[in-house]
Amino acid sequence: MNITRRTAIAAIAALGVTAVPAVAQQYPTKPITAIVPFAAGGPTDVVTRLVTEHMSRTLGQQIVVENIGGAGGSIGMTRAAAAAPDGYTIAVGNMGTQSAAPALYPNLKYDPATSFTQISVVNFTPQTIVSKKTLEPKDLKELLAYLKANSEKLNYGHAGVGSISYVSGFVFNAQFGFKPALVAYKGTGPALNDLVGGQIDYMVDQSLNVIPQITAGTIKAYAVAHPERIAALPDVPTTKELGVDFIFSAWNAMVAPKGLPKDIQDKLLDALSKAMDDPTIIKRYEELGSTAPKGADRGPAGLQKLVESEVARITPVLKAAAAK
């Protein structure tokens, strides 16, 4: 039985590590903590556990996921920013913590662009425009026209201020001038539940949350807000092919506290890259409707550019909403 053996190995490893002082050996010499600023089981947590399990094998040390939830992820990221830059604390934030947070939390204690040593984007999850099953419009064009005429009578559901569905919905509604009533839920689960039950009318949410419902036909999908179709939803068109200018992806990114030595940064990036290229993980990503960053998107420079451009894109929309 695998479990008991693994437990035993972990136990021995833990005891062994306590006894050996960590002085000037090859990094890493002890378990690494990966802070996930959200509750266990959410999209960021799942992706983090997927890649860190693989990274642990590459690095030869366990990466322990520590969930520090609260305040839309900003509590966990604040703690990550304040940790020692020795490579033993890393964190995985998402679009919310790394680009929307400054606009949402005026006394935020970190700056996503400068408080961290960027490692890389871990995955992109395109947003999908979905509605309850009984909504009239048949395709995206019809939906946009319908929303234009009726949006004030409709209800948009989101998973709470600062959540991905809140931010993406905000950008979507603002861009096309829709003014639905916003119904706030605590988390994606209850919101989705009421969308399936027809209590609310439409949502823009991460594809990984809505794929099972779309394939089962309990909700309607209009488009994926992405340049290419995603493997898990081959029949759902993209906004790009329909000629609608709305591209929106949620993403998760691995970072470390500011001042991480270059060699450690490289080591972590290398391990993460190996994980993202692993066939099993690529397959899991596909099932989640996610894609791994490729080419220039991968690595610290790509992440830095993404953070800066997303902050620039999202902040004005949210600020305008707050001023209202």
Binding site: T7, A10, A11, A14, L15, T18, T33, V64, V65, E66
Partner: peptide, 10 residues
């Protein structure tokens, strides 16, 4: 620590 693996400093 050993049985439940909680991420608590030792």
């Amino acid at each position: 620590k050993v049985v439940l693996h909680l991420p608590i400093p030792v």
